[in-house]
């Protein structure tokens, strides 16, 4: 068990009139190597939750264990934890600061106290992993396009070689092509490196195709925690939370209602295509 979240509560601005109970009694087990999607409407507590996993926020009550150790123990090395649990923030391009792309990616590994050679090797690897074109390595990060900046920022976290990678809405504000590129890249990372990945998003279509498990959050609680097809079977509840099942789920439901024998539980476009073809006897 890599990460265990045990009865965690978090309140922003405790003791003021504007106190927000952002997390309510969260319990989770995140085993190694899983690809998890965290879904929820804006303000449901997704970002708050993931900031607990690398110790940036301290739970108001409850505890979090990483590899069996309580991260709130006195003397626990949080800096070390942050190198194992990499967190890419929403709009991560706003954290770029160095004169060129390459040195910016070096920032993370350099903070780990590695040798110069090791730092540069890791930065190089990370930039390759995110598919960043080599001829742009020494341009200023401020001159890049939005999608490129985001790749650099993700590489900046990858370069620390984390065991767990958390991405907070990595596709926010990107065009459809940029979105797909980033999501494909994340999937490839997971397959190649076997990292545990947590992908935060407010769109089911983003994650349906990729993840092993979905956590649905609403008003600071985890409402569903299951494999995608189970989660998508709760269409009505999801809609009440201002979420939607992936588009294929709706199409298949409508087809079924129209009397066509399709498998309603298909979650990805490929699965849906094959069950529809099957129904029309065209295998």
């Amino acid at each position: 068990m890599a990460i265990i979240v045990d009865h965690v509560n978090y309140i922003y601005g405790q003791d003021t009139e504007q106190a927000v109970h952002a997390l309510q009694d969260i319990n989770l087990q995140i085993p190694d190597g899983q690809f998890i999607g965290i879904i929820g409407h804006t303000g449901s507590g997704k970002s708050t939750l993931v900031q607990h996993l690398n110790g940036l926020l301290k739970a108001t009550s409850g505890s979090i264990y990483y590899n069996g150790q309580d991260i709130y123990d006195e003397g626990y090395n949080l800096k070390d934890l942050r190198s194992h649990v990499g967190l890419v923030f929403q709009y991560p391009e706003h954290q770029l600061f160095e004169v060129d792309v390459f040195s910016d990616v070096c920032f993370g590994p350099k903070n780990l106290g590695l040798s110069k050679k090791e730092v540069e090797l890791r930065a190089f690897d990370a930039l390759r992993q995110v598919g960043f074109p080599e001829e742009l390595f020494y341009t200023s990060p401020f001159d890049l396009s939005g999608g490129q900046k985001r790749r650099v920022a993700i590489a900046g976290v990858l370069a620390m070689k984390p065991d767990v990678l958390i991405l907070d809405e990595p596709t926010a504000g990107l065009d459809p092509k940029g979105r797909e590129d980033i999501l494909d890249m994340v999937k490839r990372l997971q397959q190649e490196s076997g990292m545990t990945i947590l992908l935060v998003s407010h769109s089911m279509d983003d994650v349906a195709e990729y993840v092993d498990r979905i956590l649905v959050m609403d008003h600071g609680r985890v409402v569903f925690d299951d494999v995608p097809r189970q989660v998508f079977s709760h269409v009505e509840e999801l809609e009440e939370m201002h979420l939607a099942a992936p588009q294929v789920t709706y199409i298949l439901r409508d087809l079924k209602k129209a009397g066509i024998e399709v498998d309603e539980n298909a979650t990805t476009v490929d699965e849906a295509a094959s069950t529809i073809l099957q129904a029309f006897g065209k295998k």
């Binding site: 900031q51 940036l56 942050r82 990499g86 923030f89 706003h94 920032f107 993370g108 903070n111 620390m160």
Partner: peptide, 12 residues
């Protein structure tokens, strides 16, 4: 926000 983002990259 930026402070947190850099802390996540091991800044001190």
């Amino acid at each position: 926000k930026i402070m947190k983002a850099q802390l996540a990259r091991g800044a001190d």
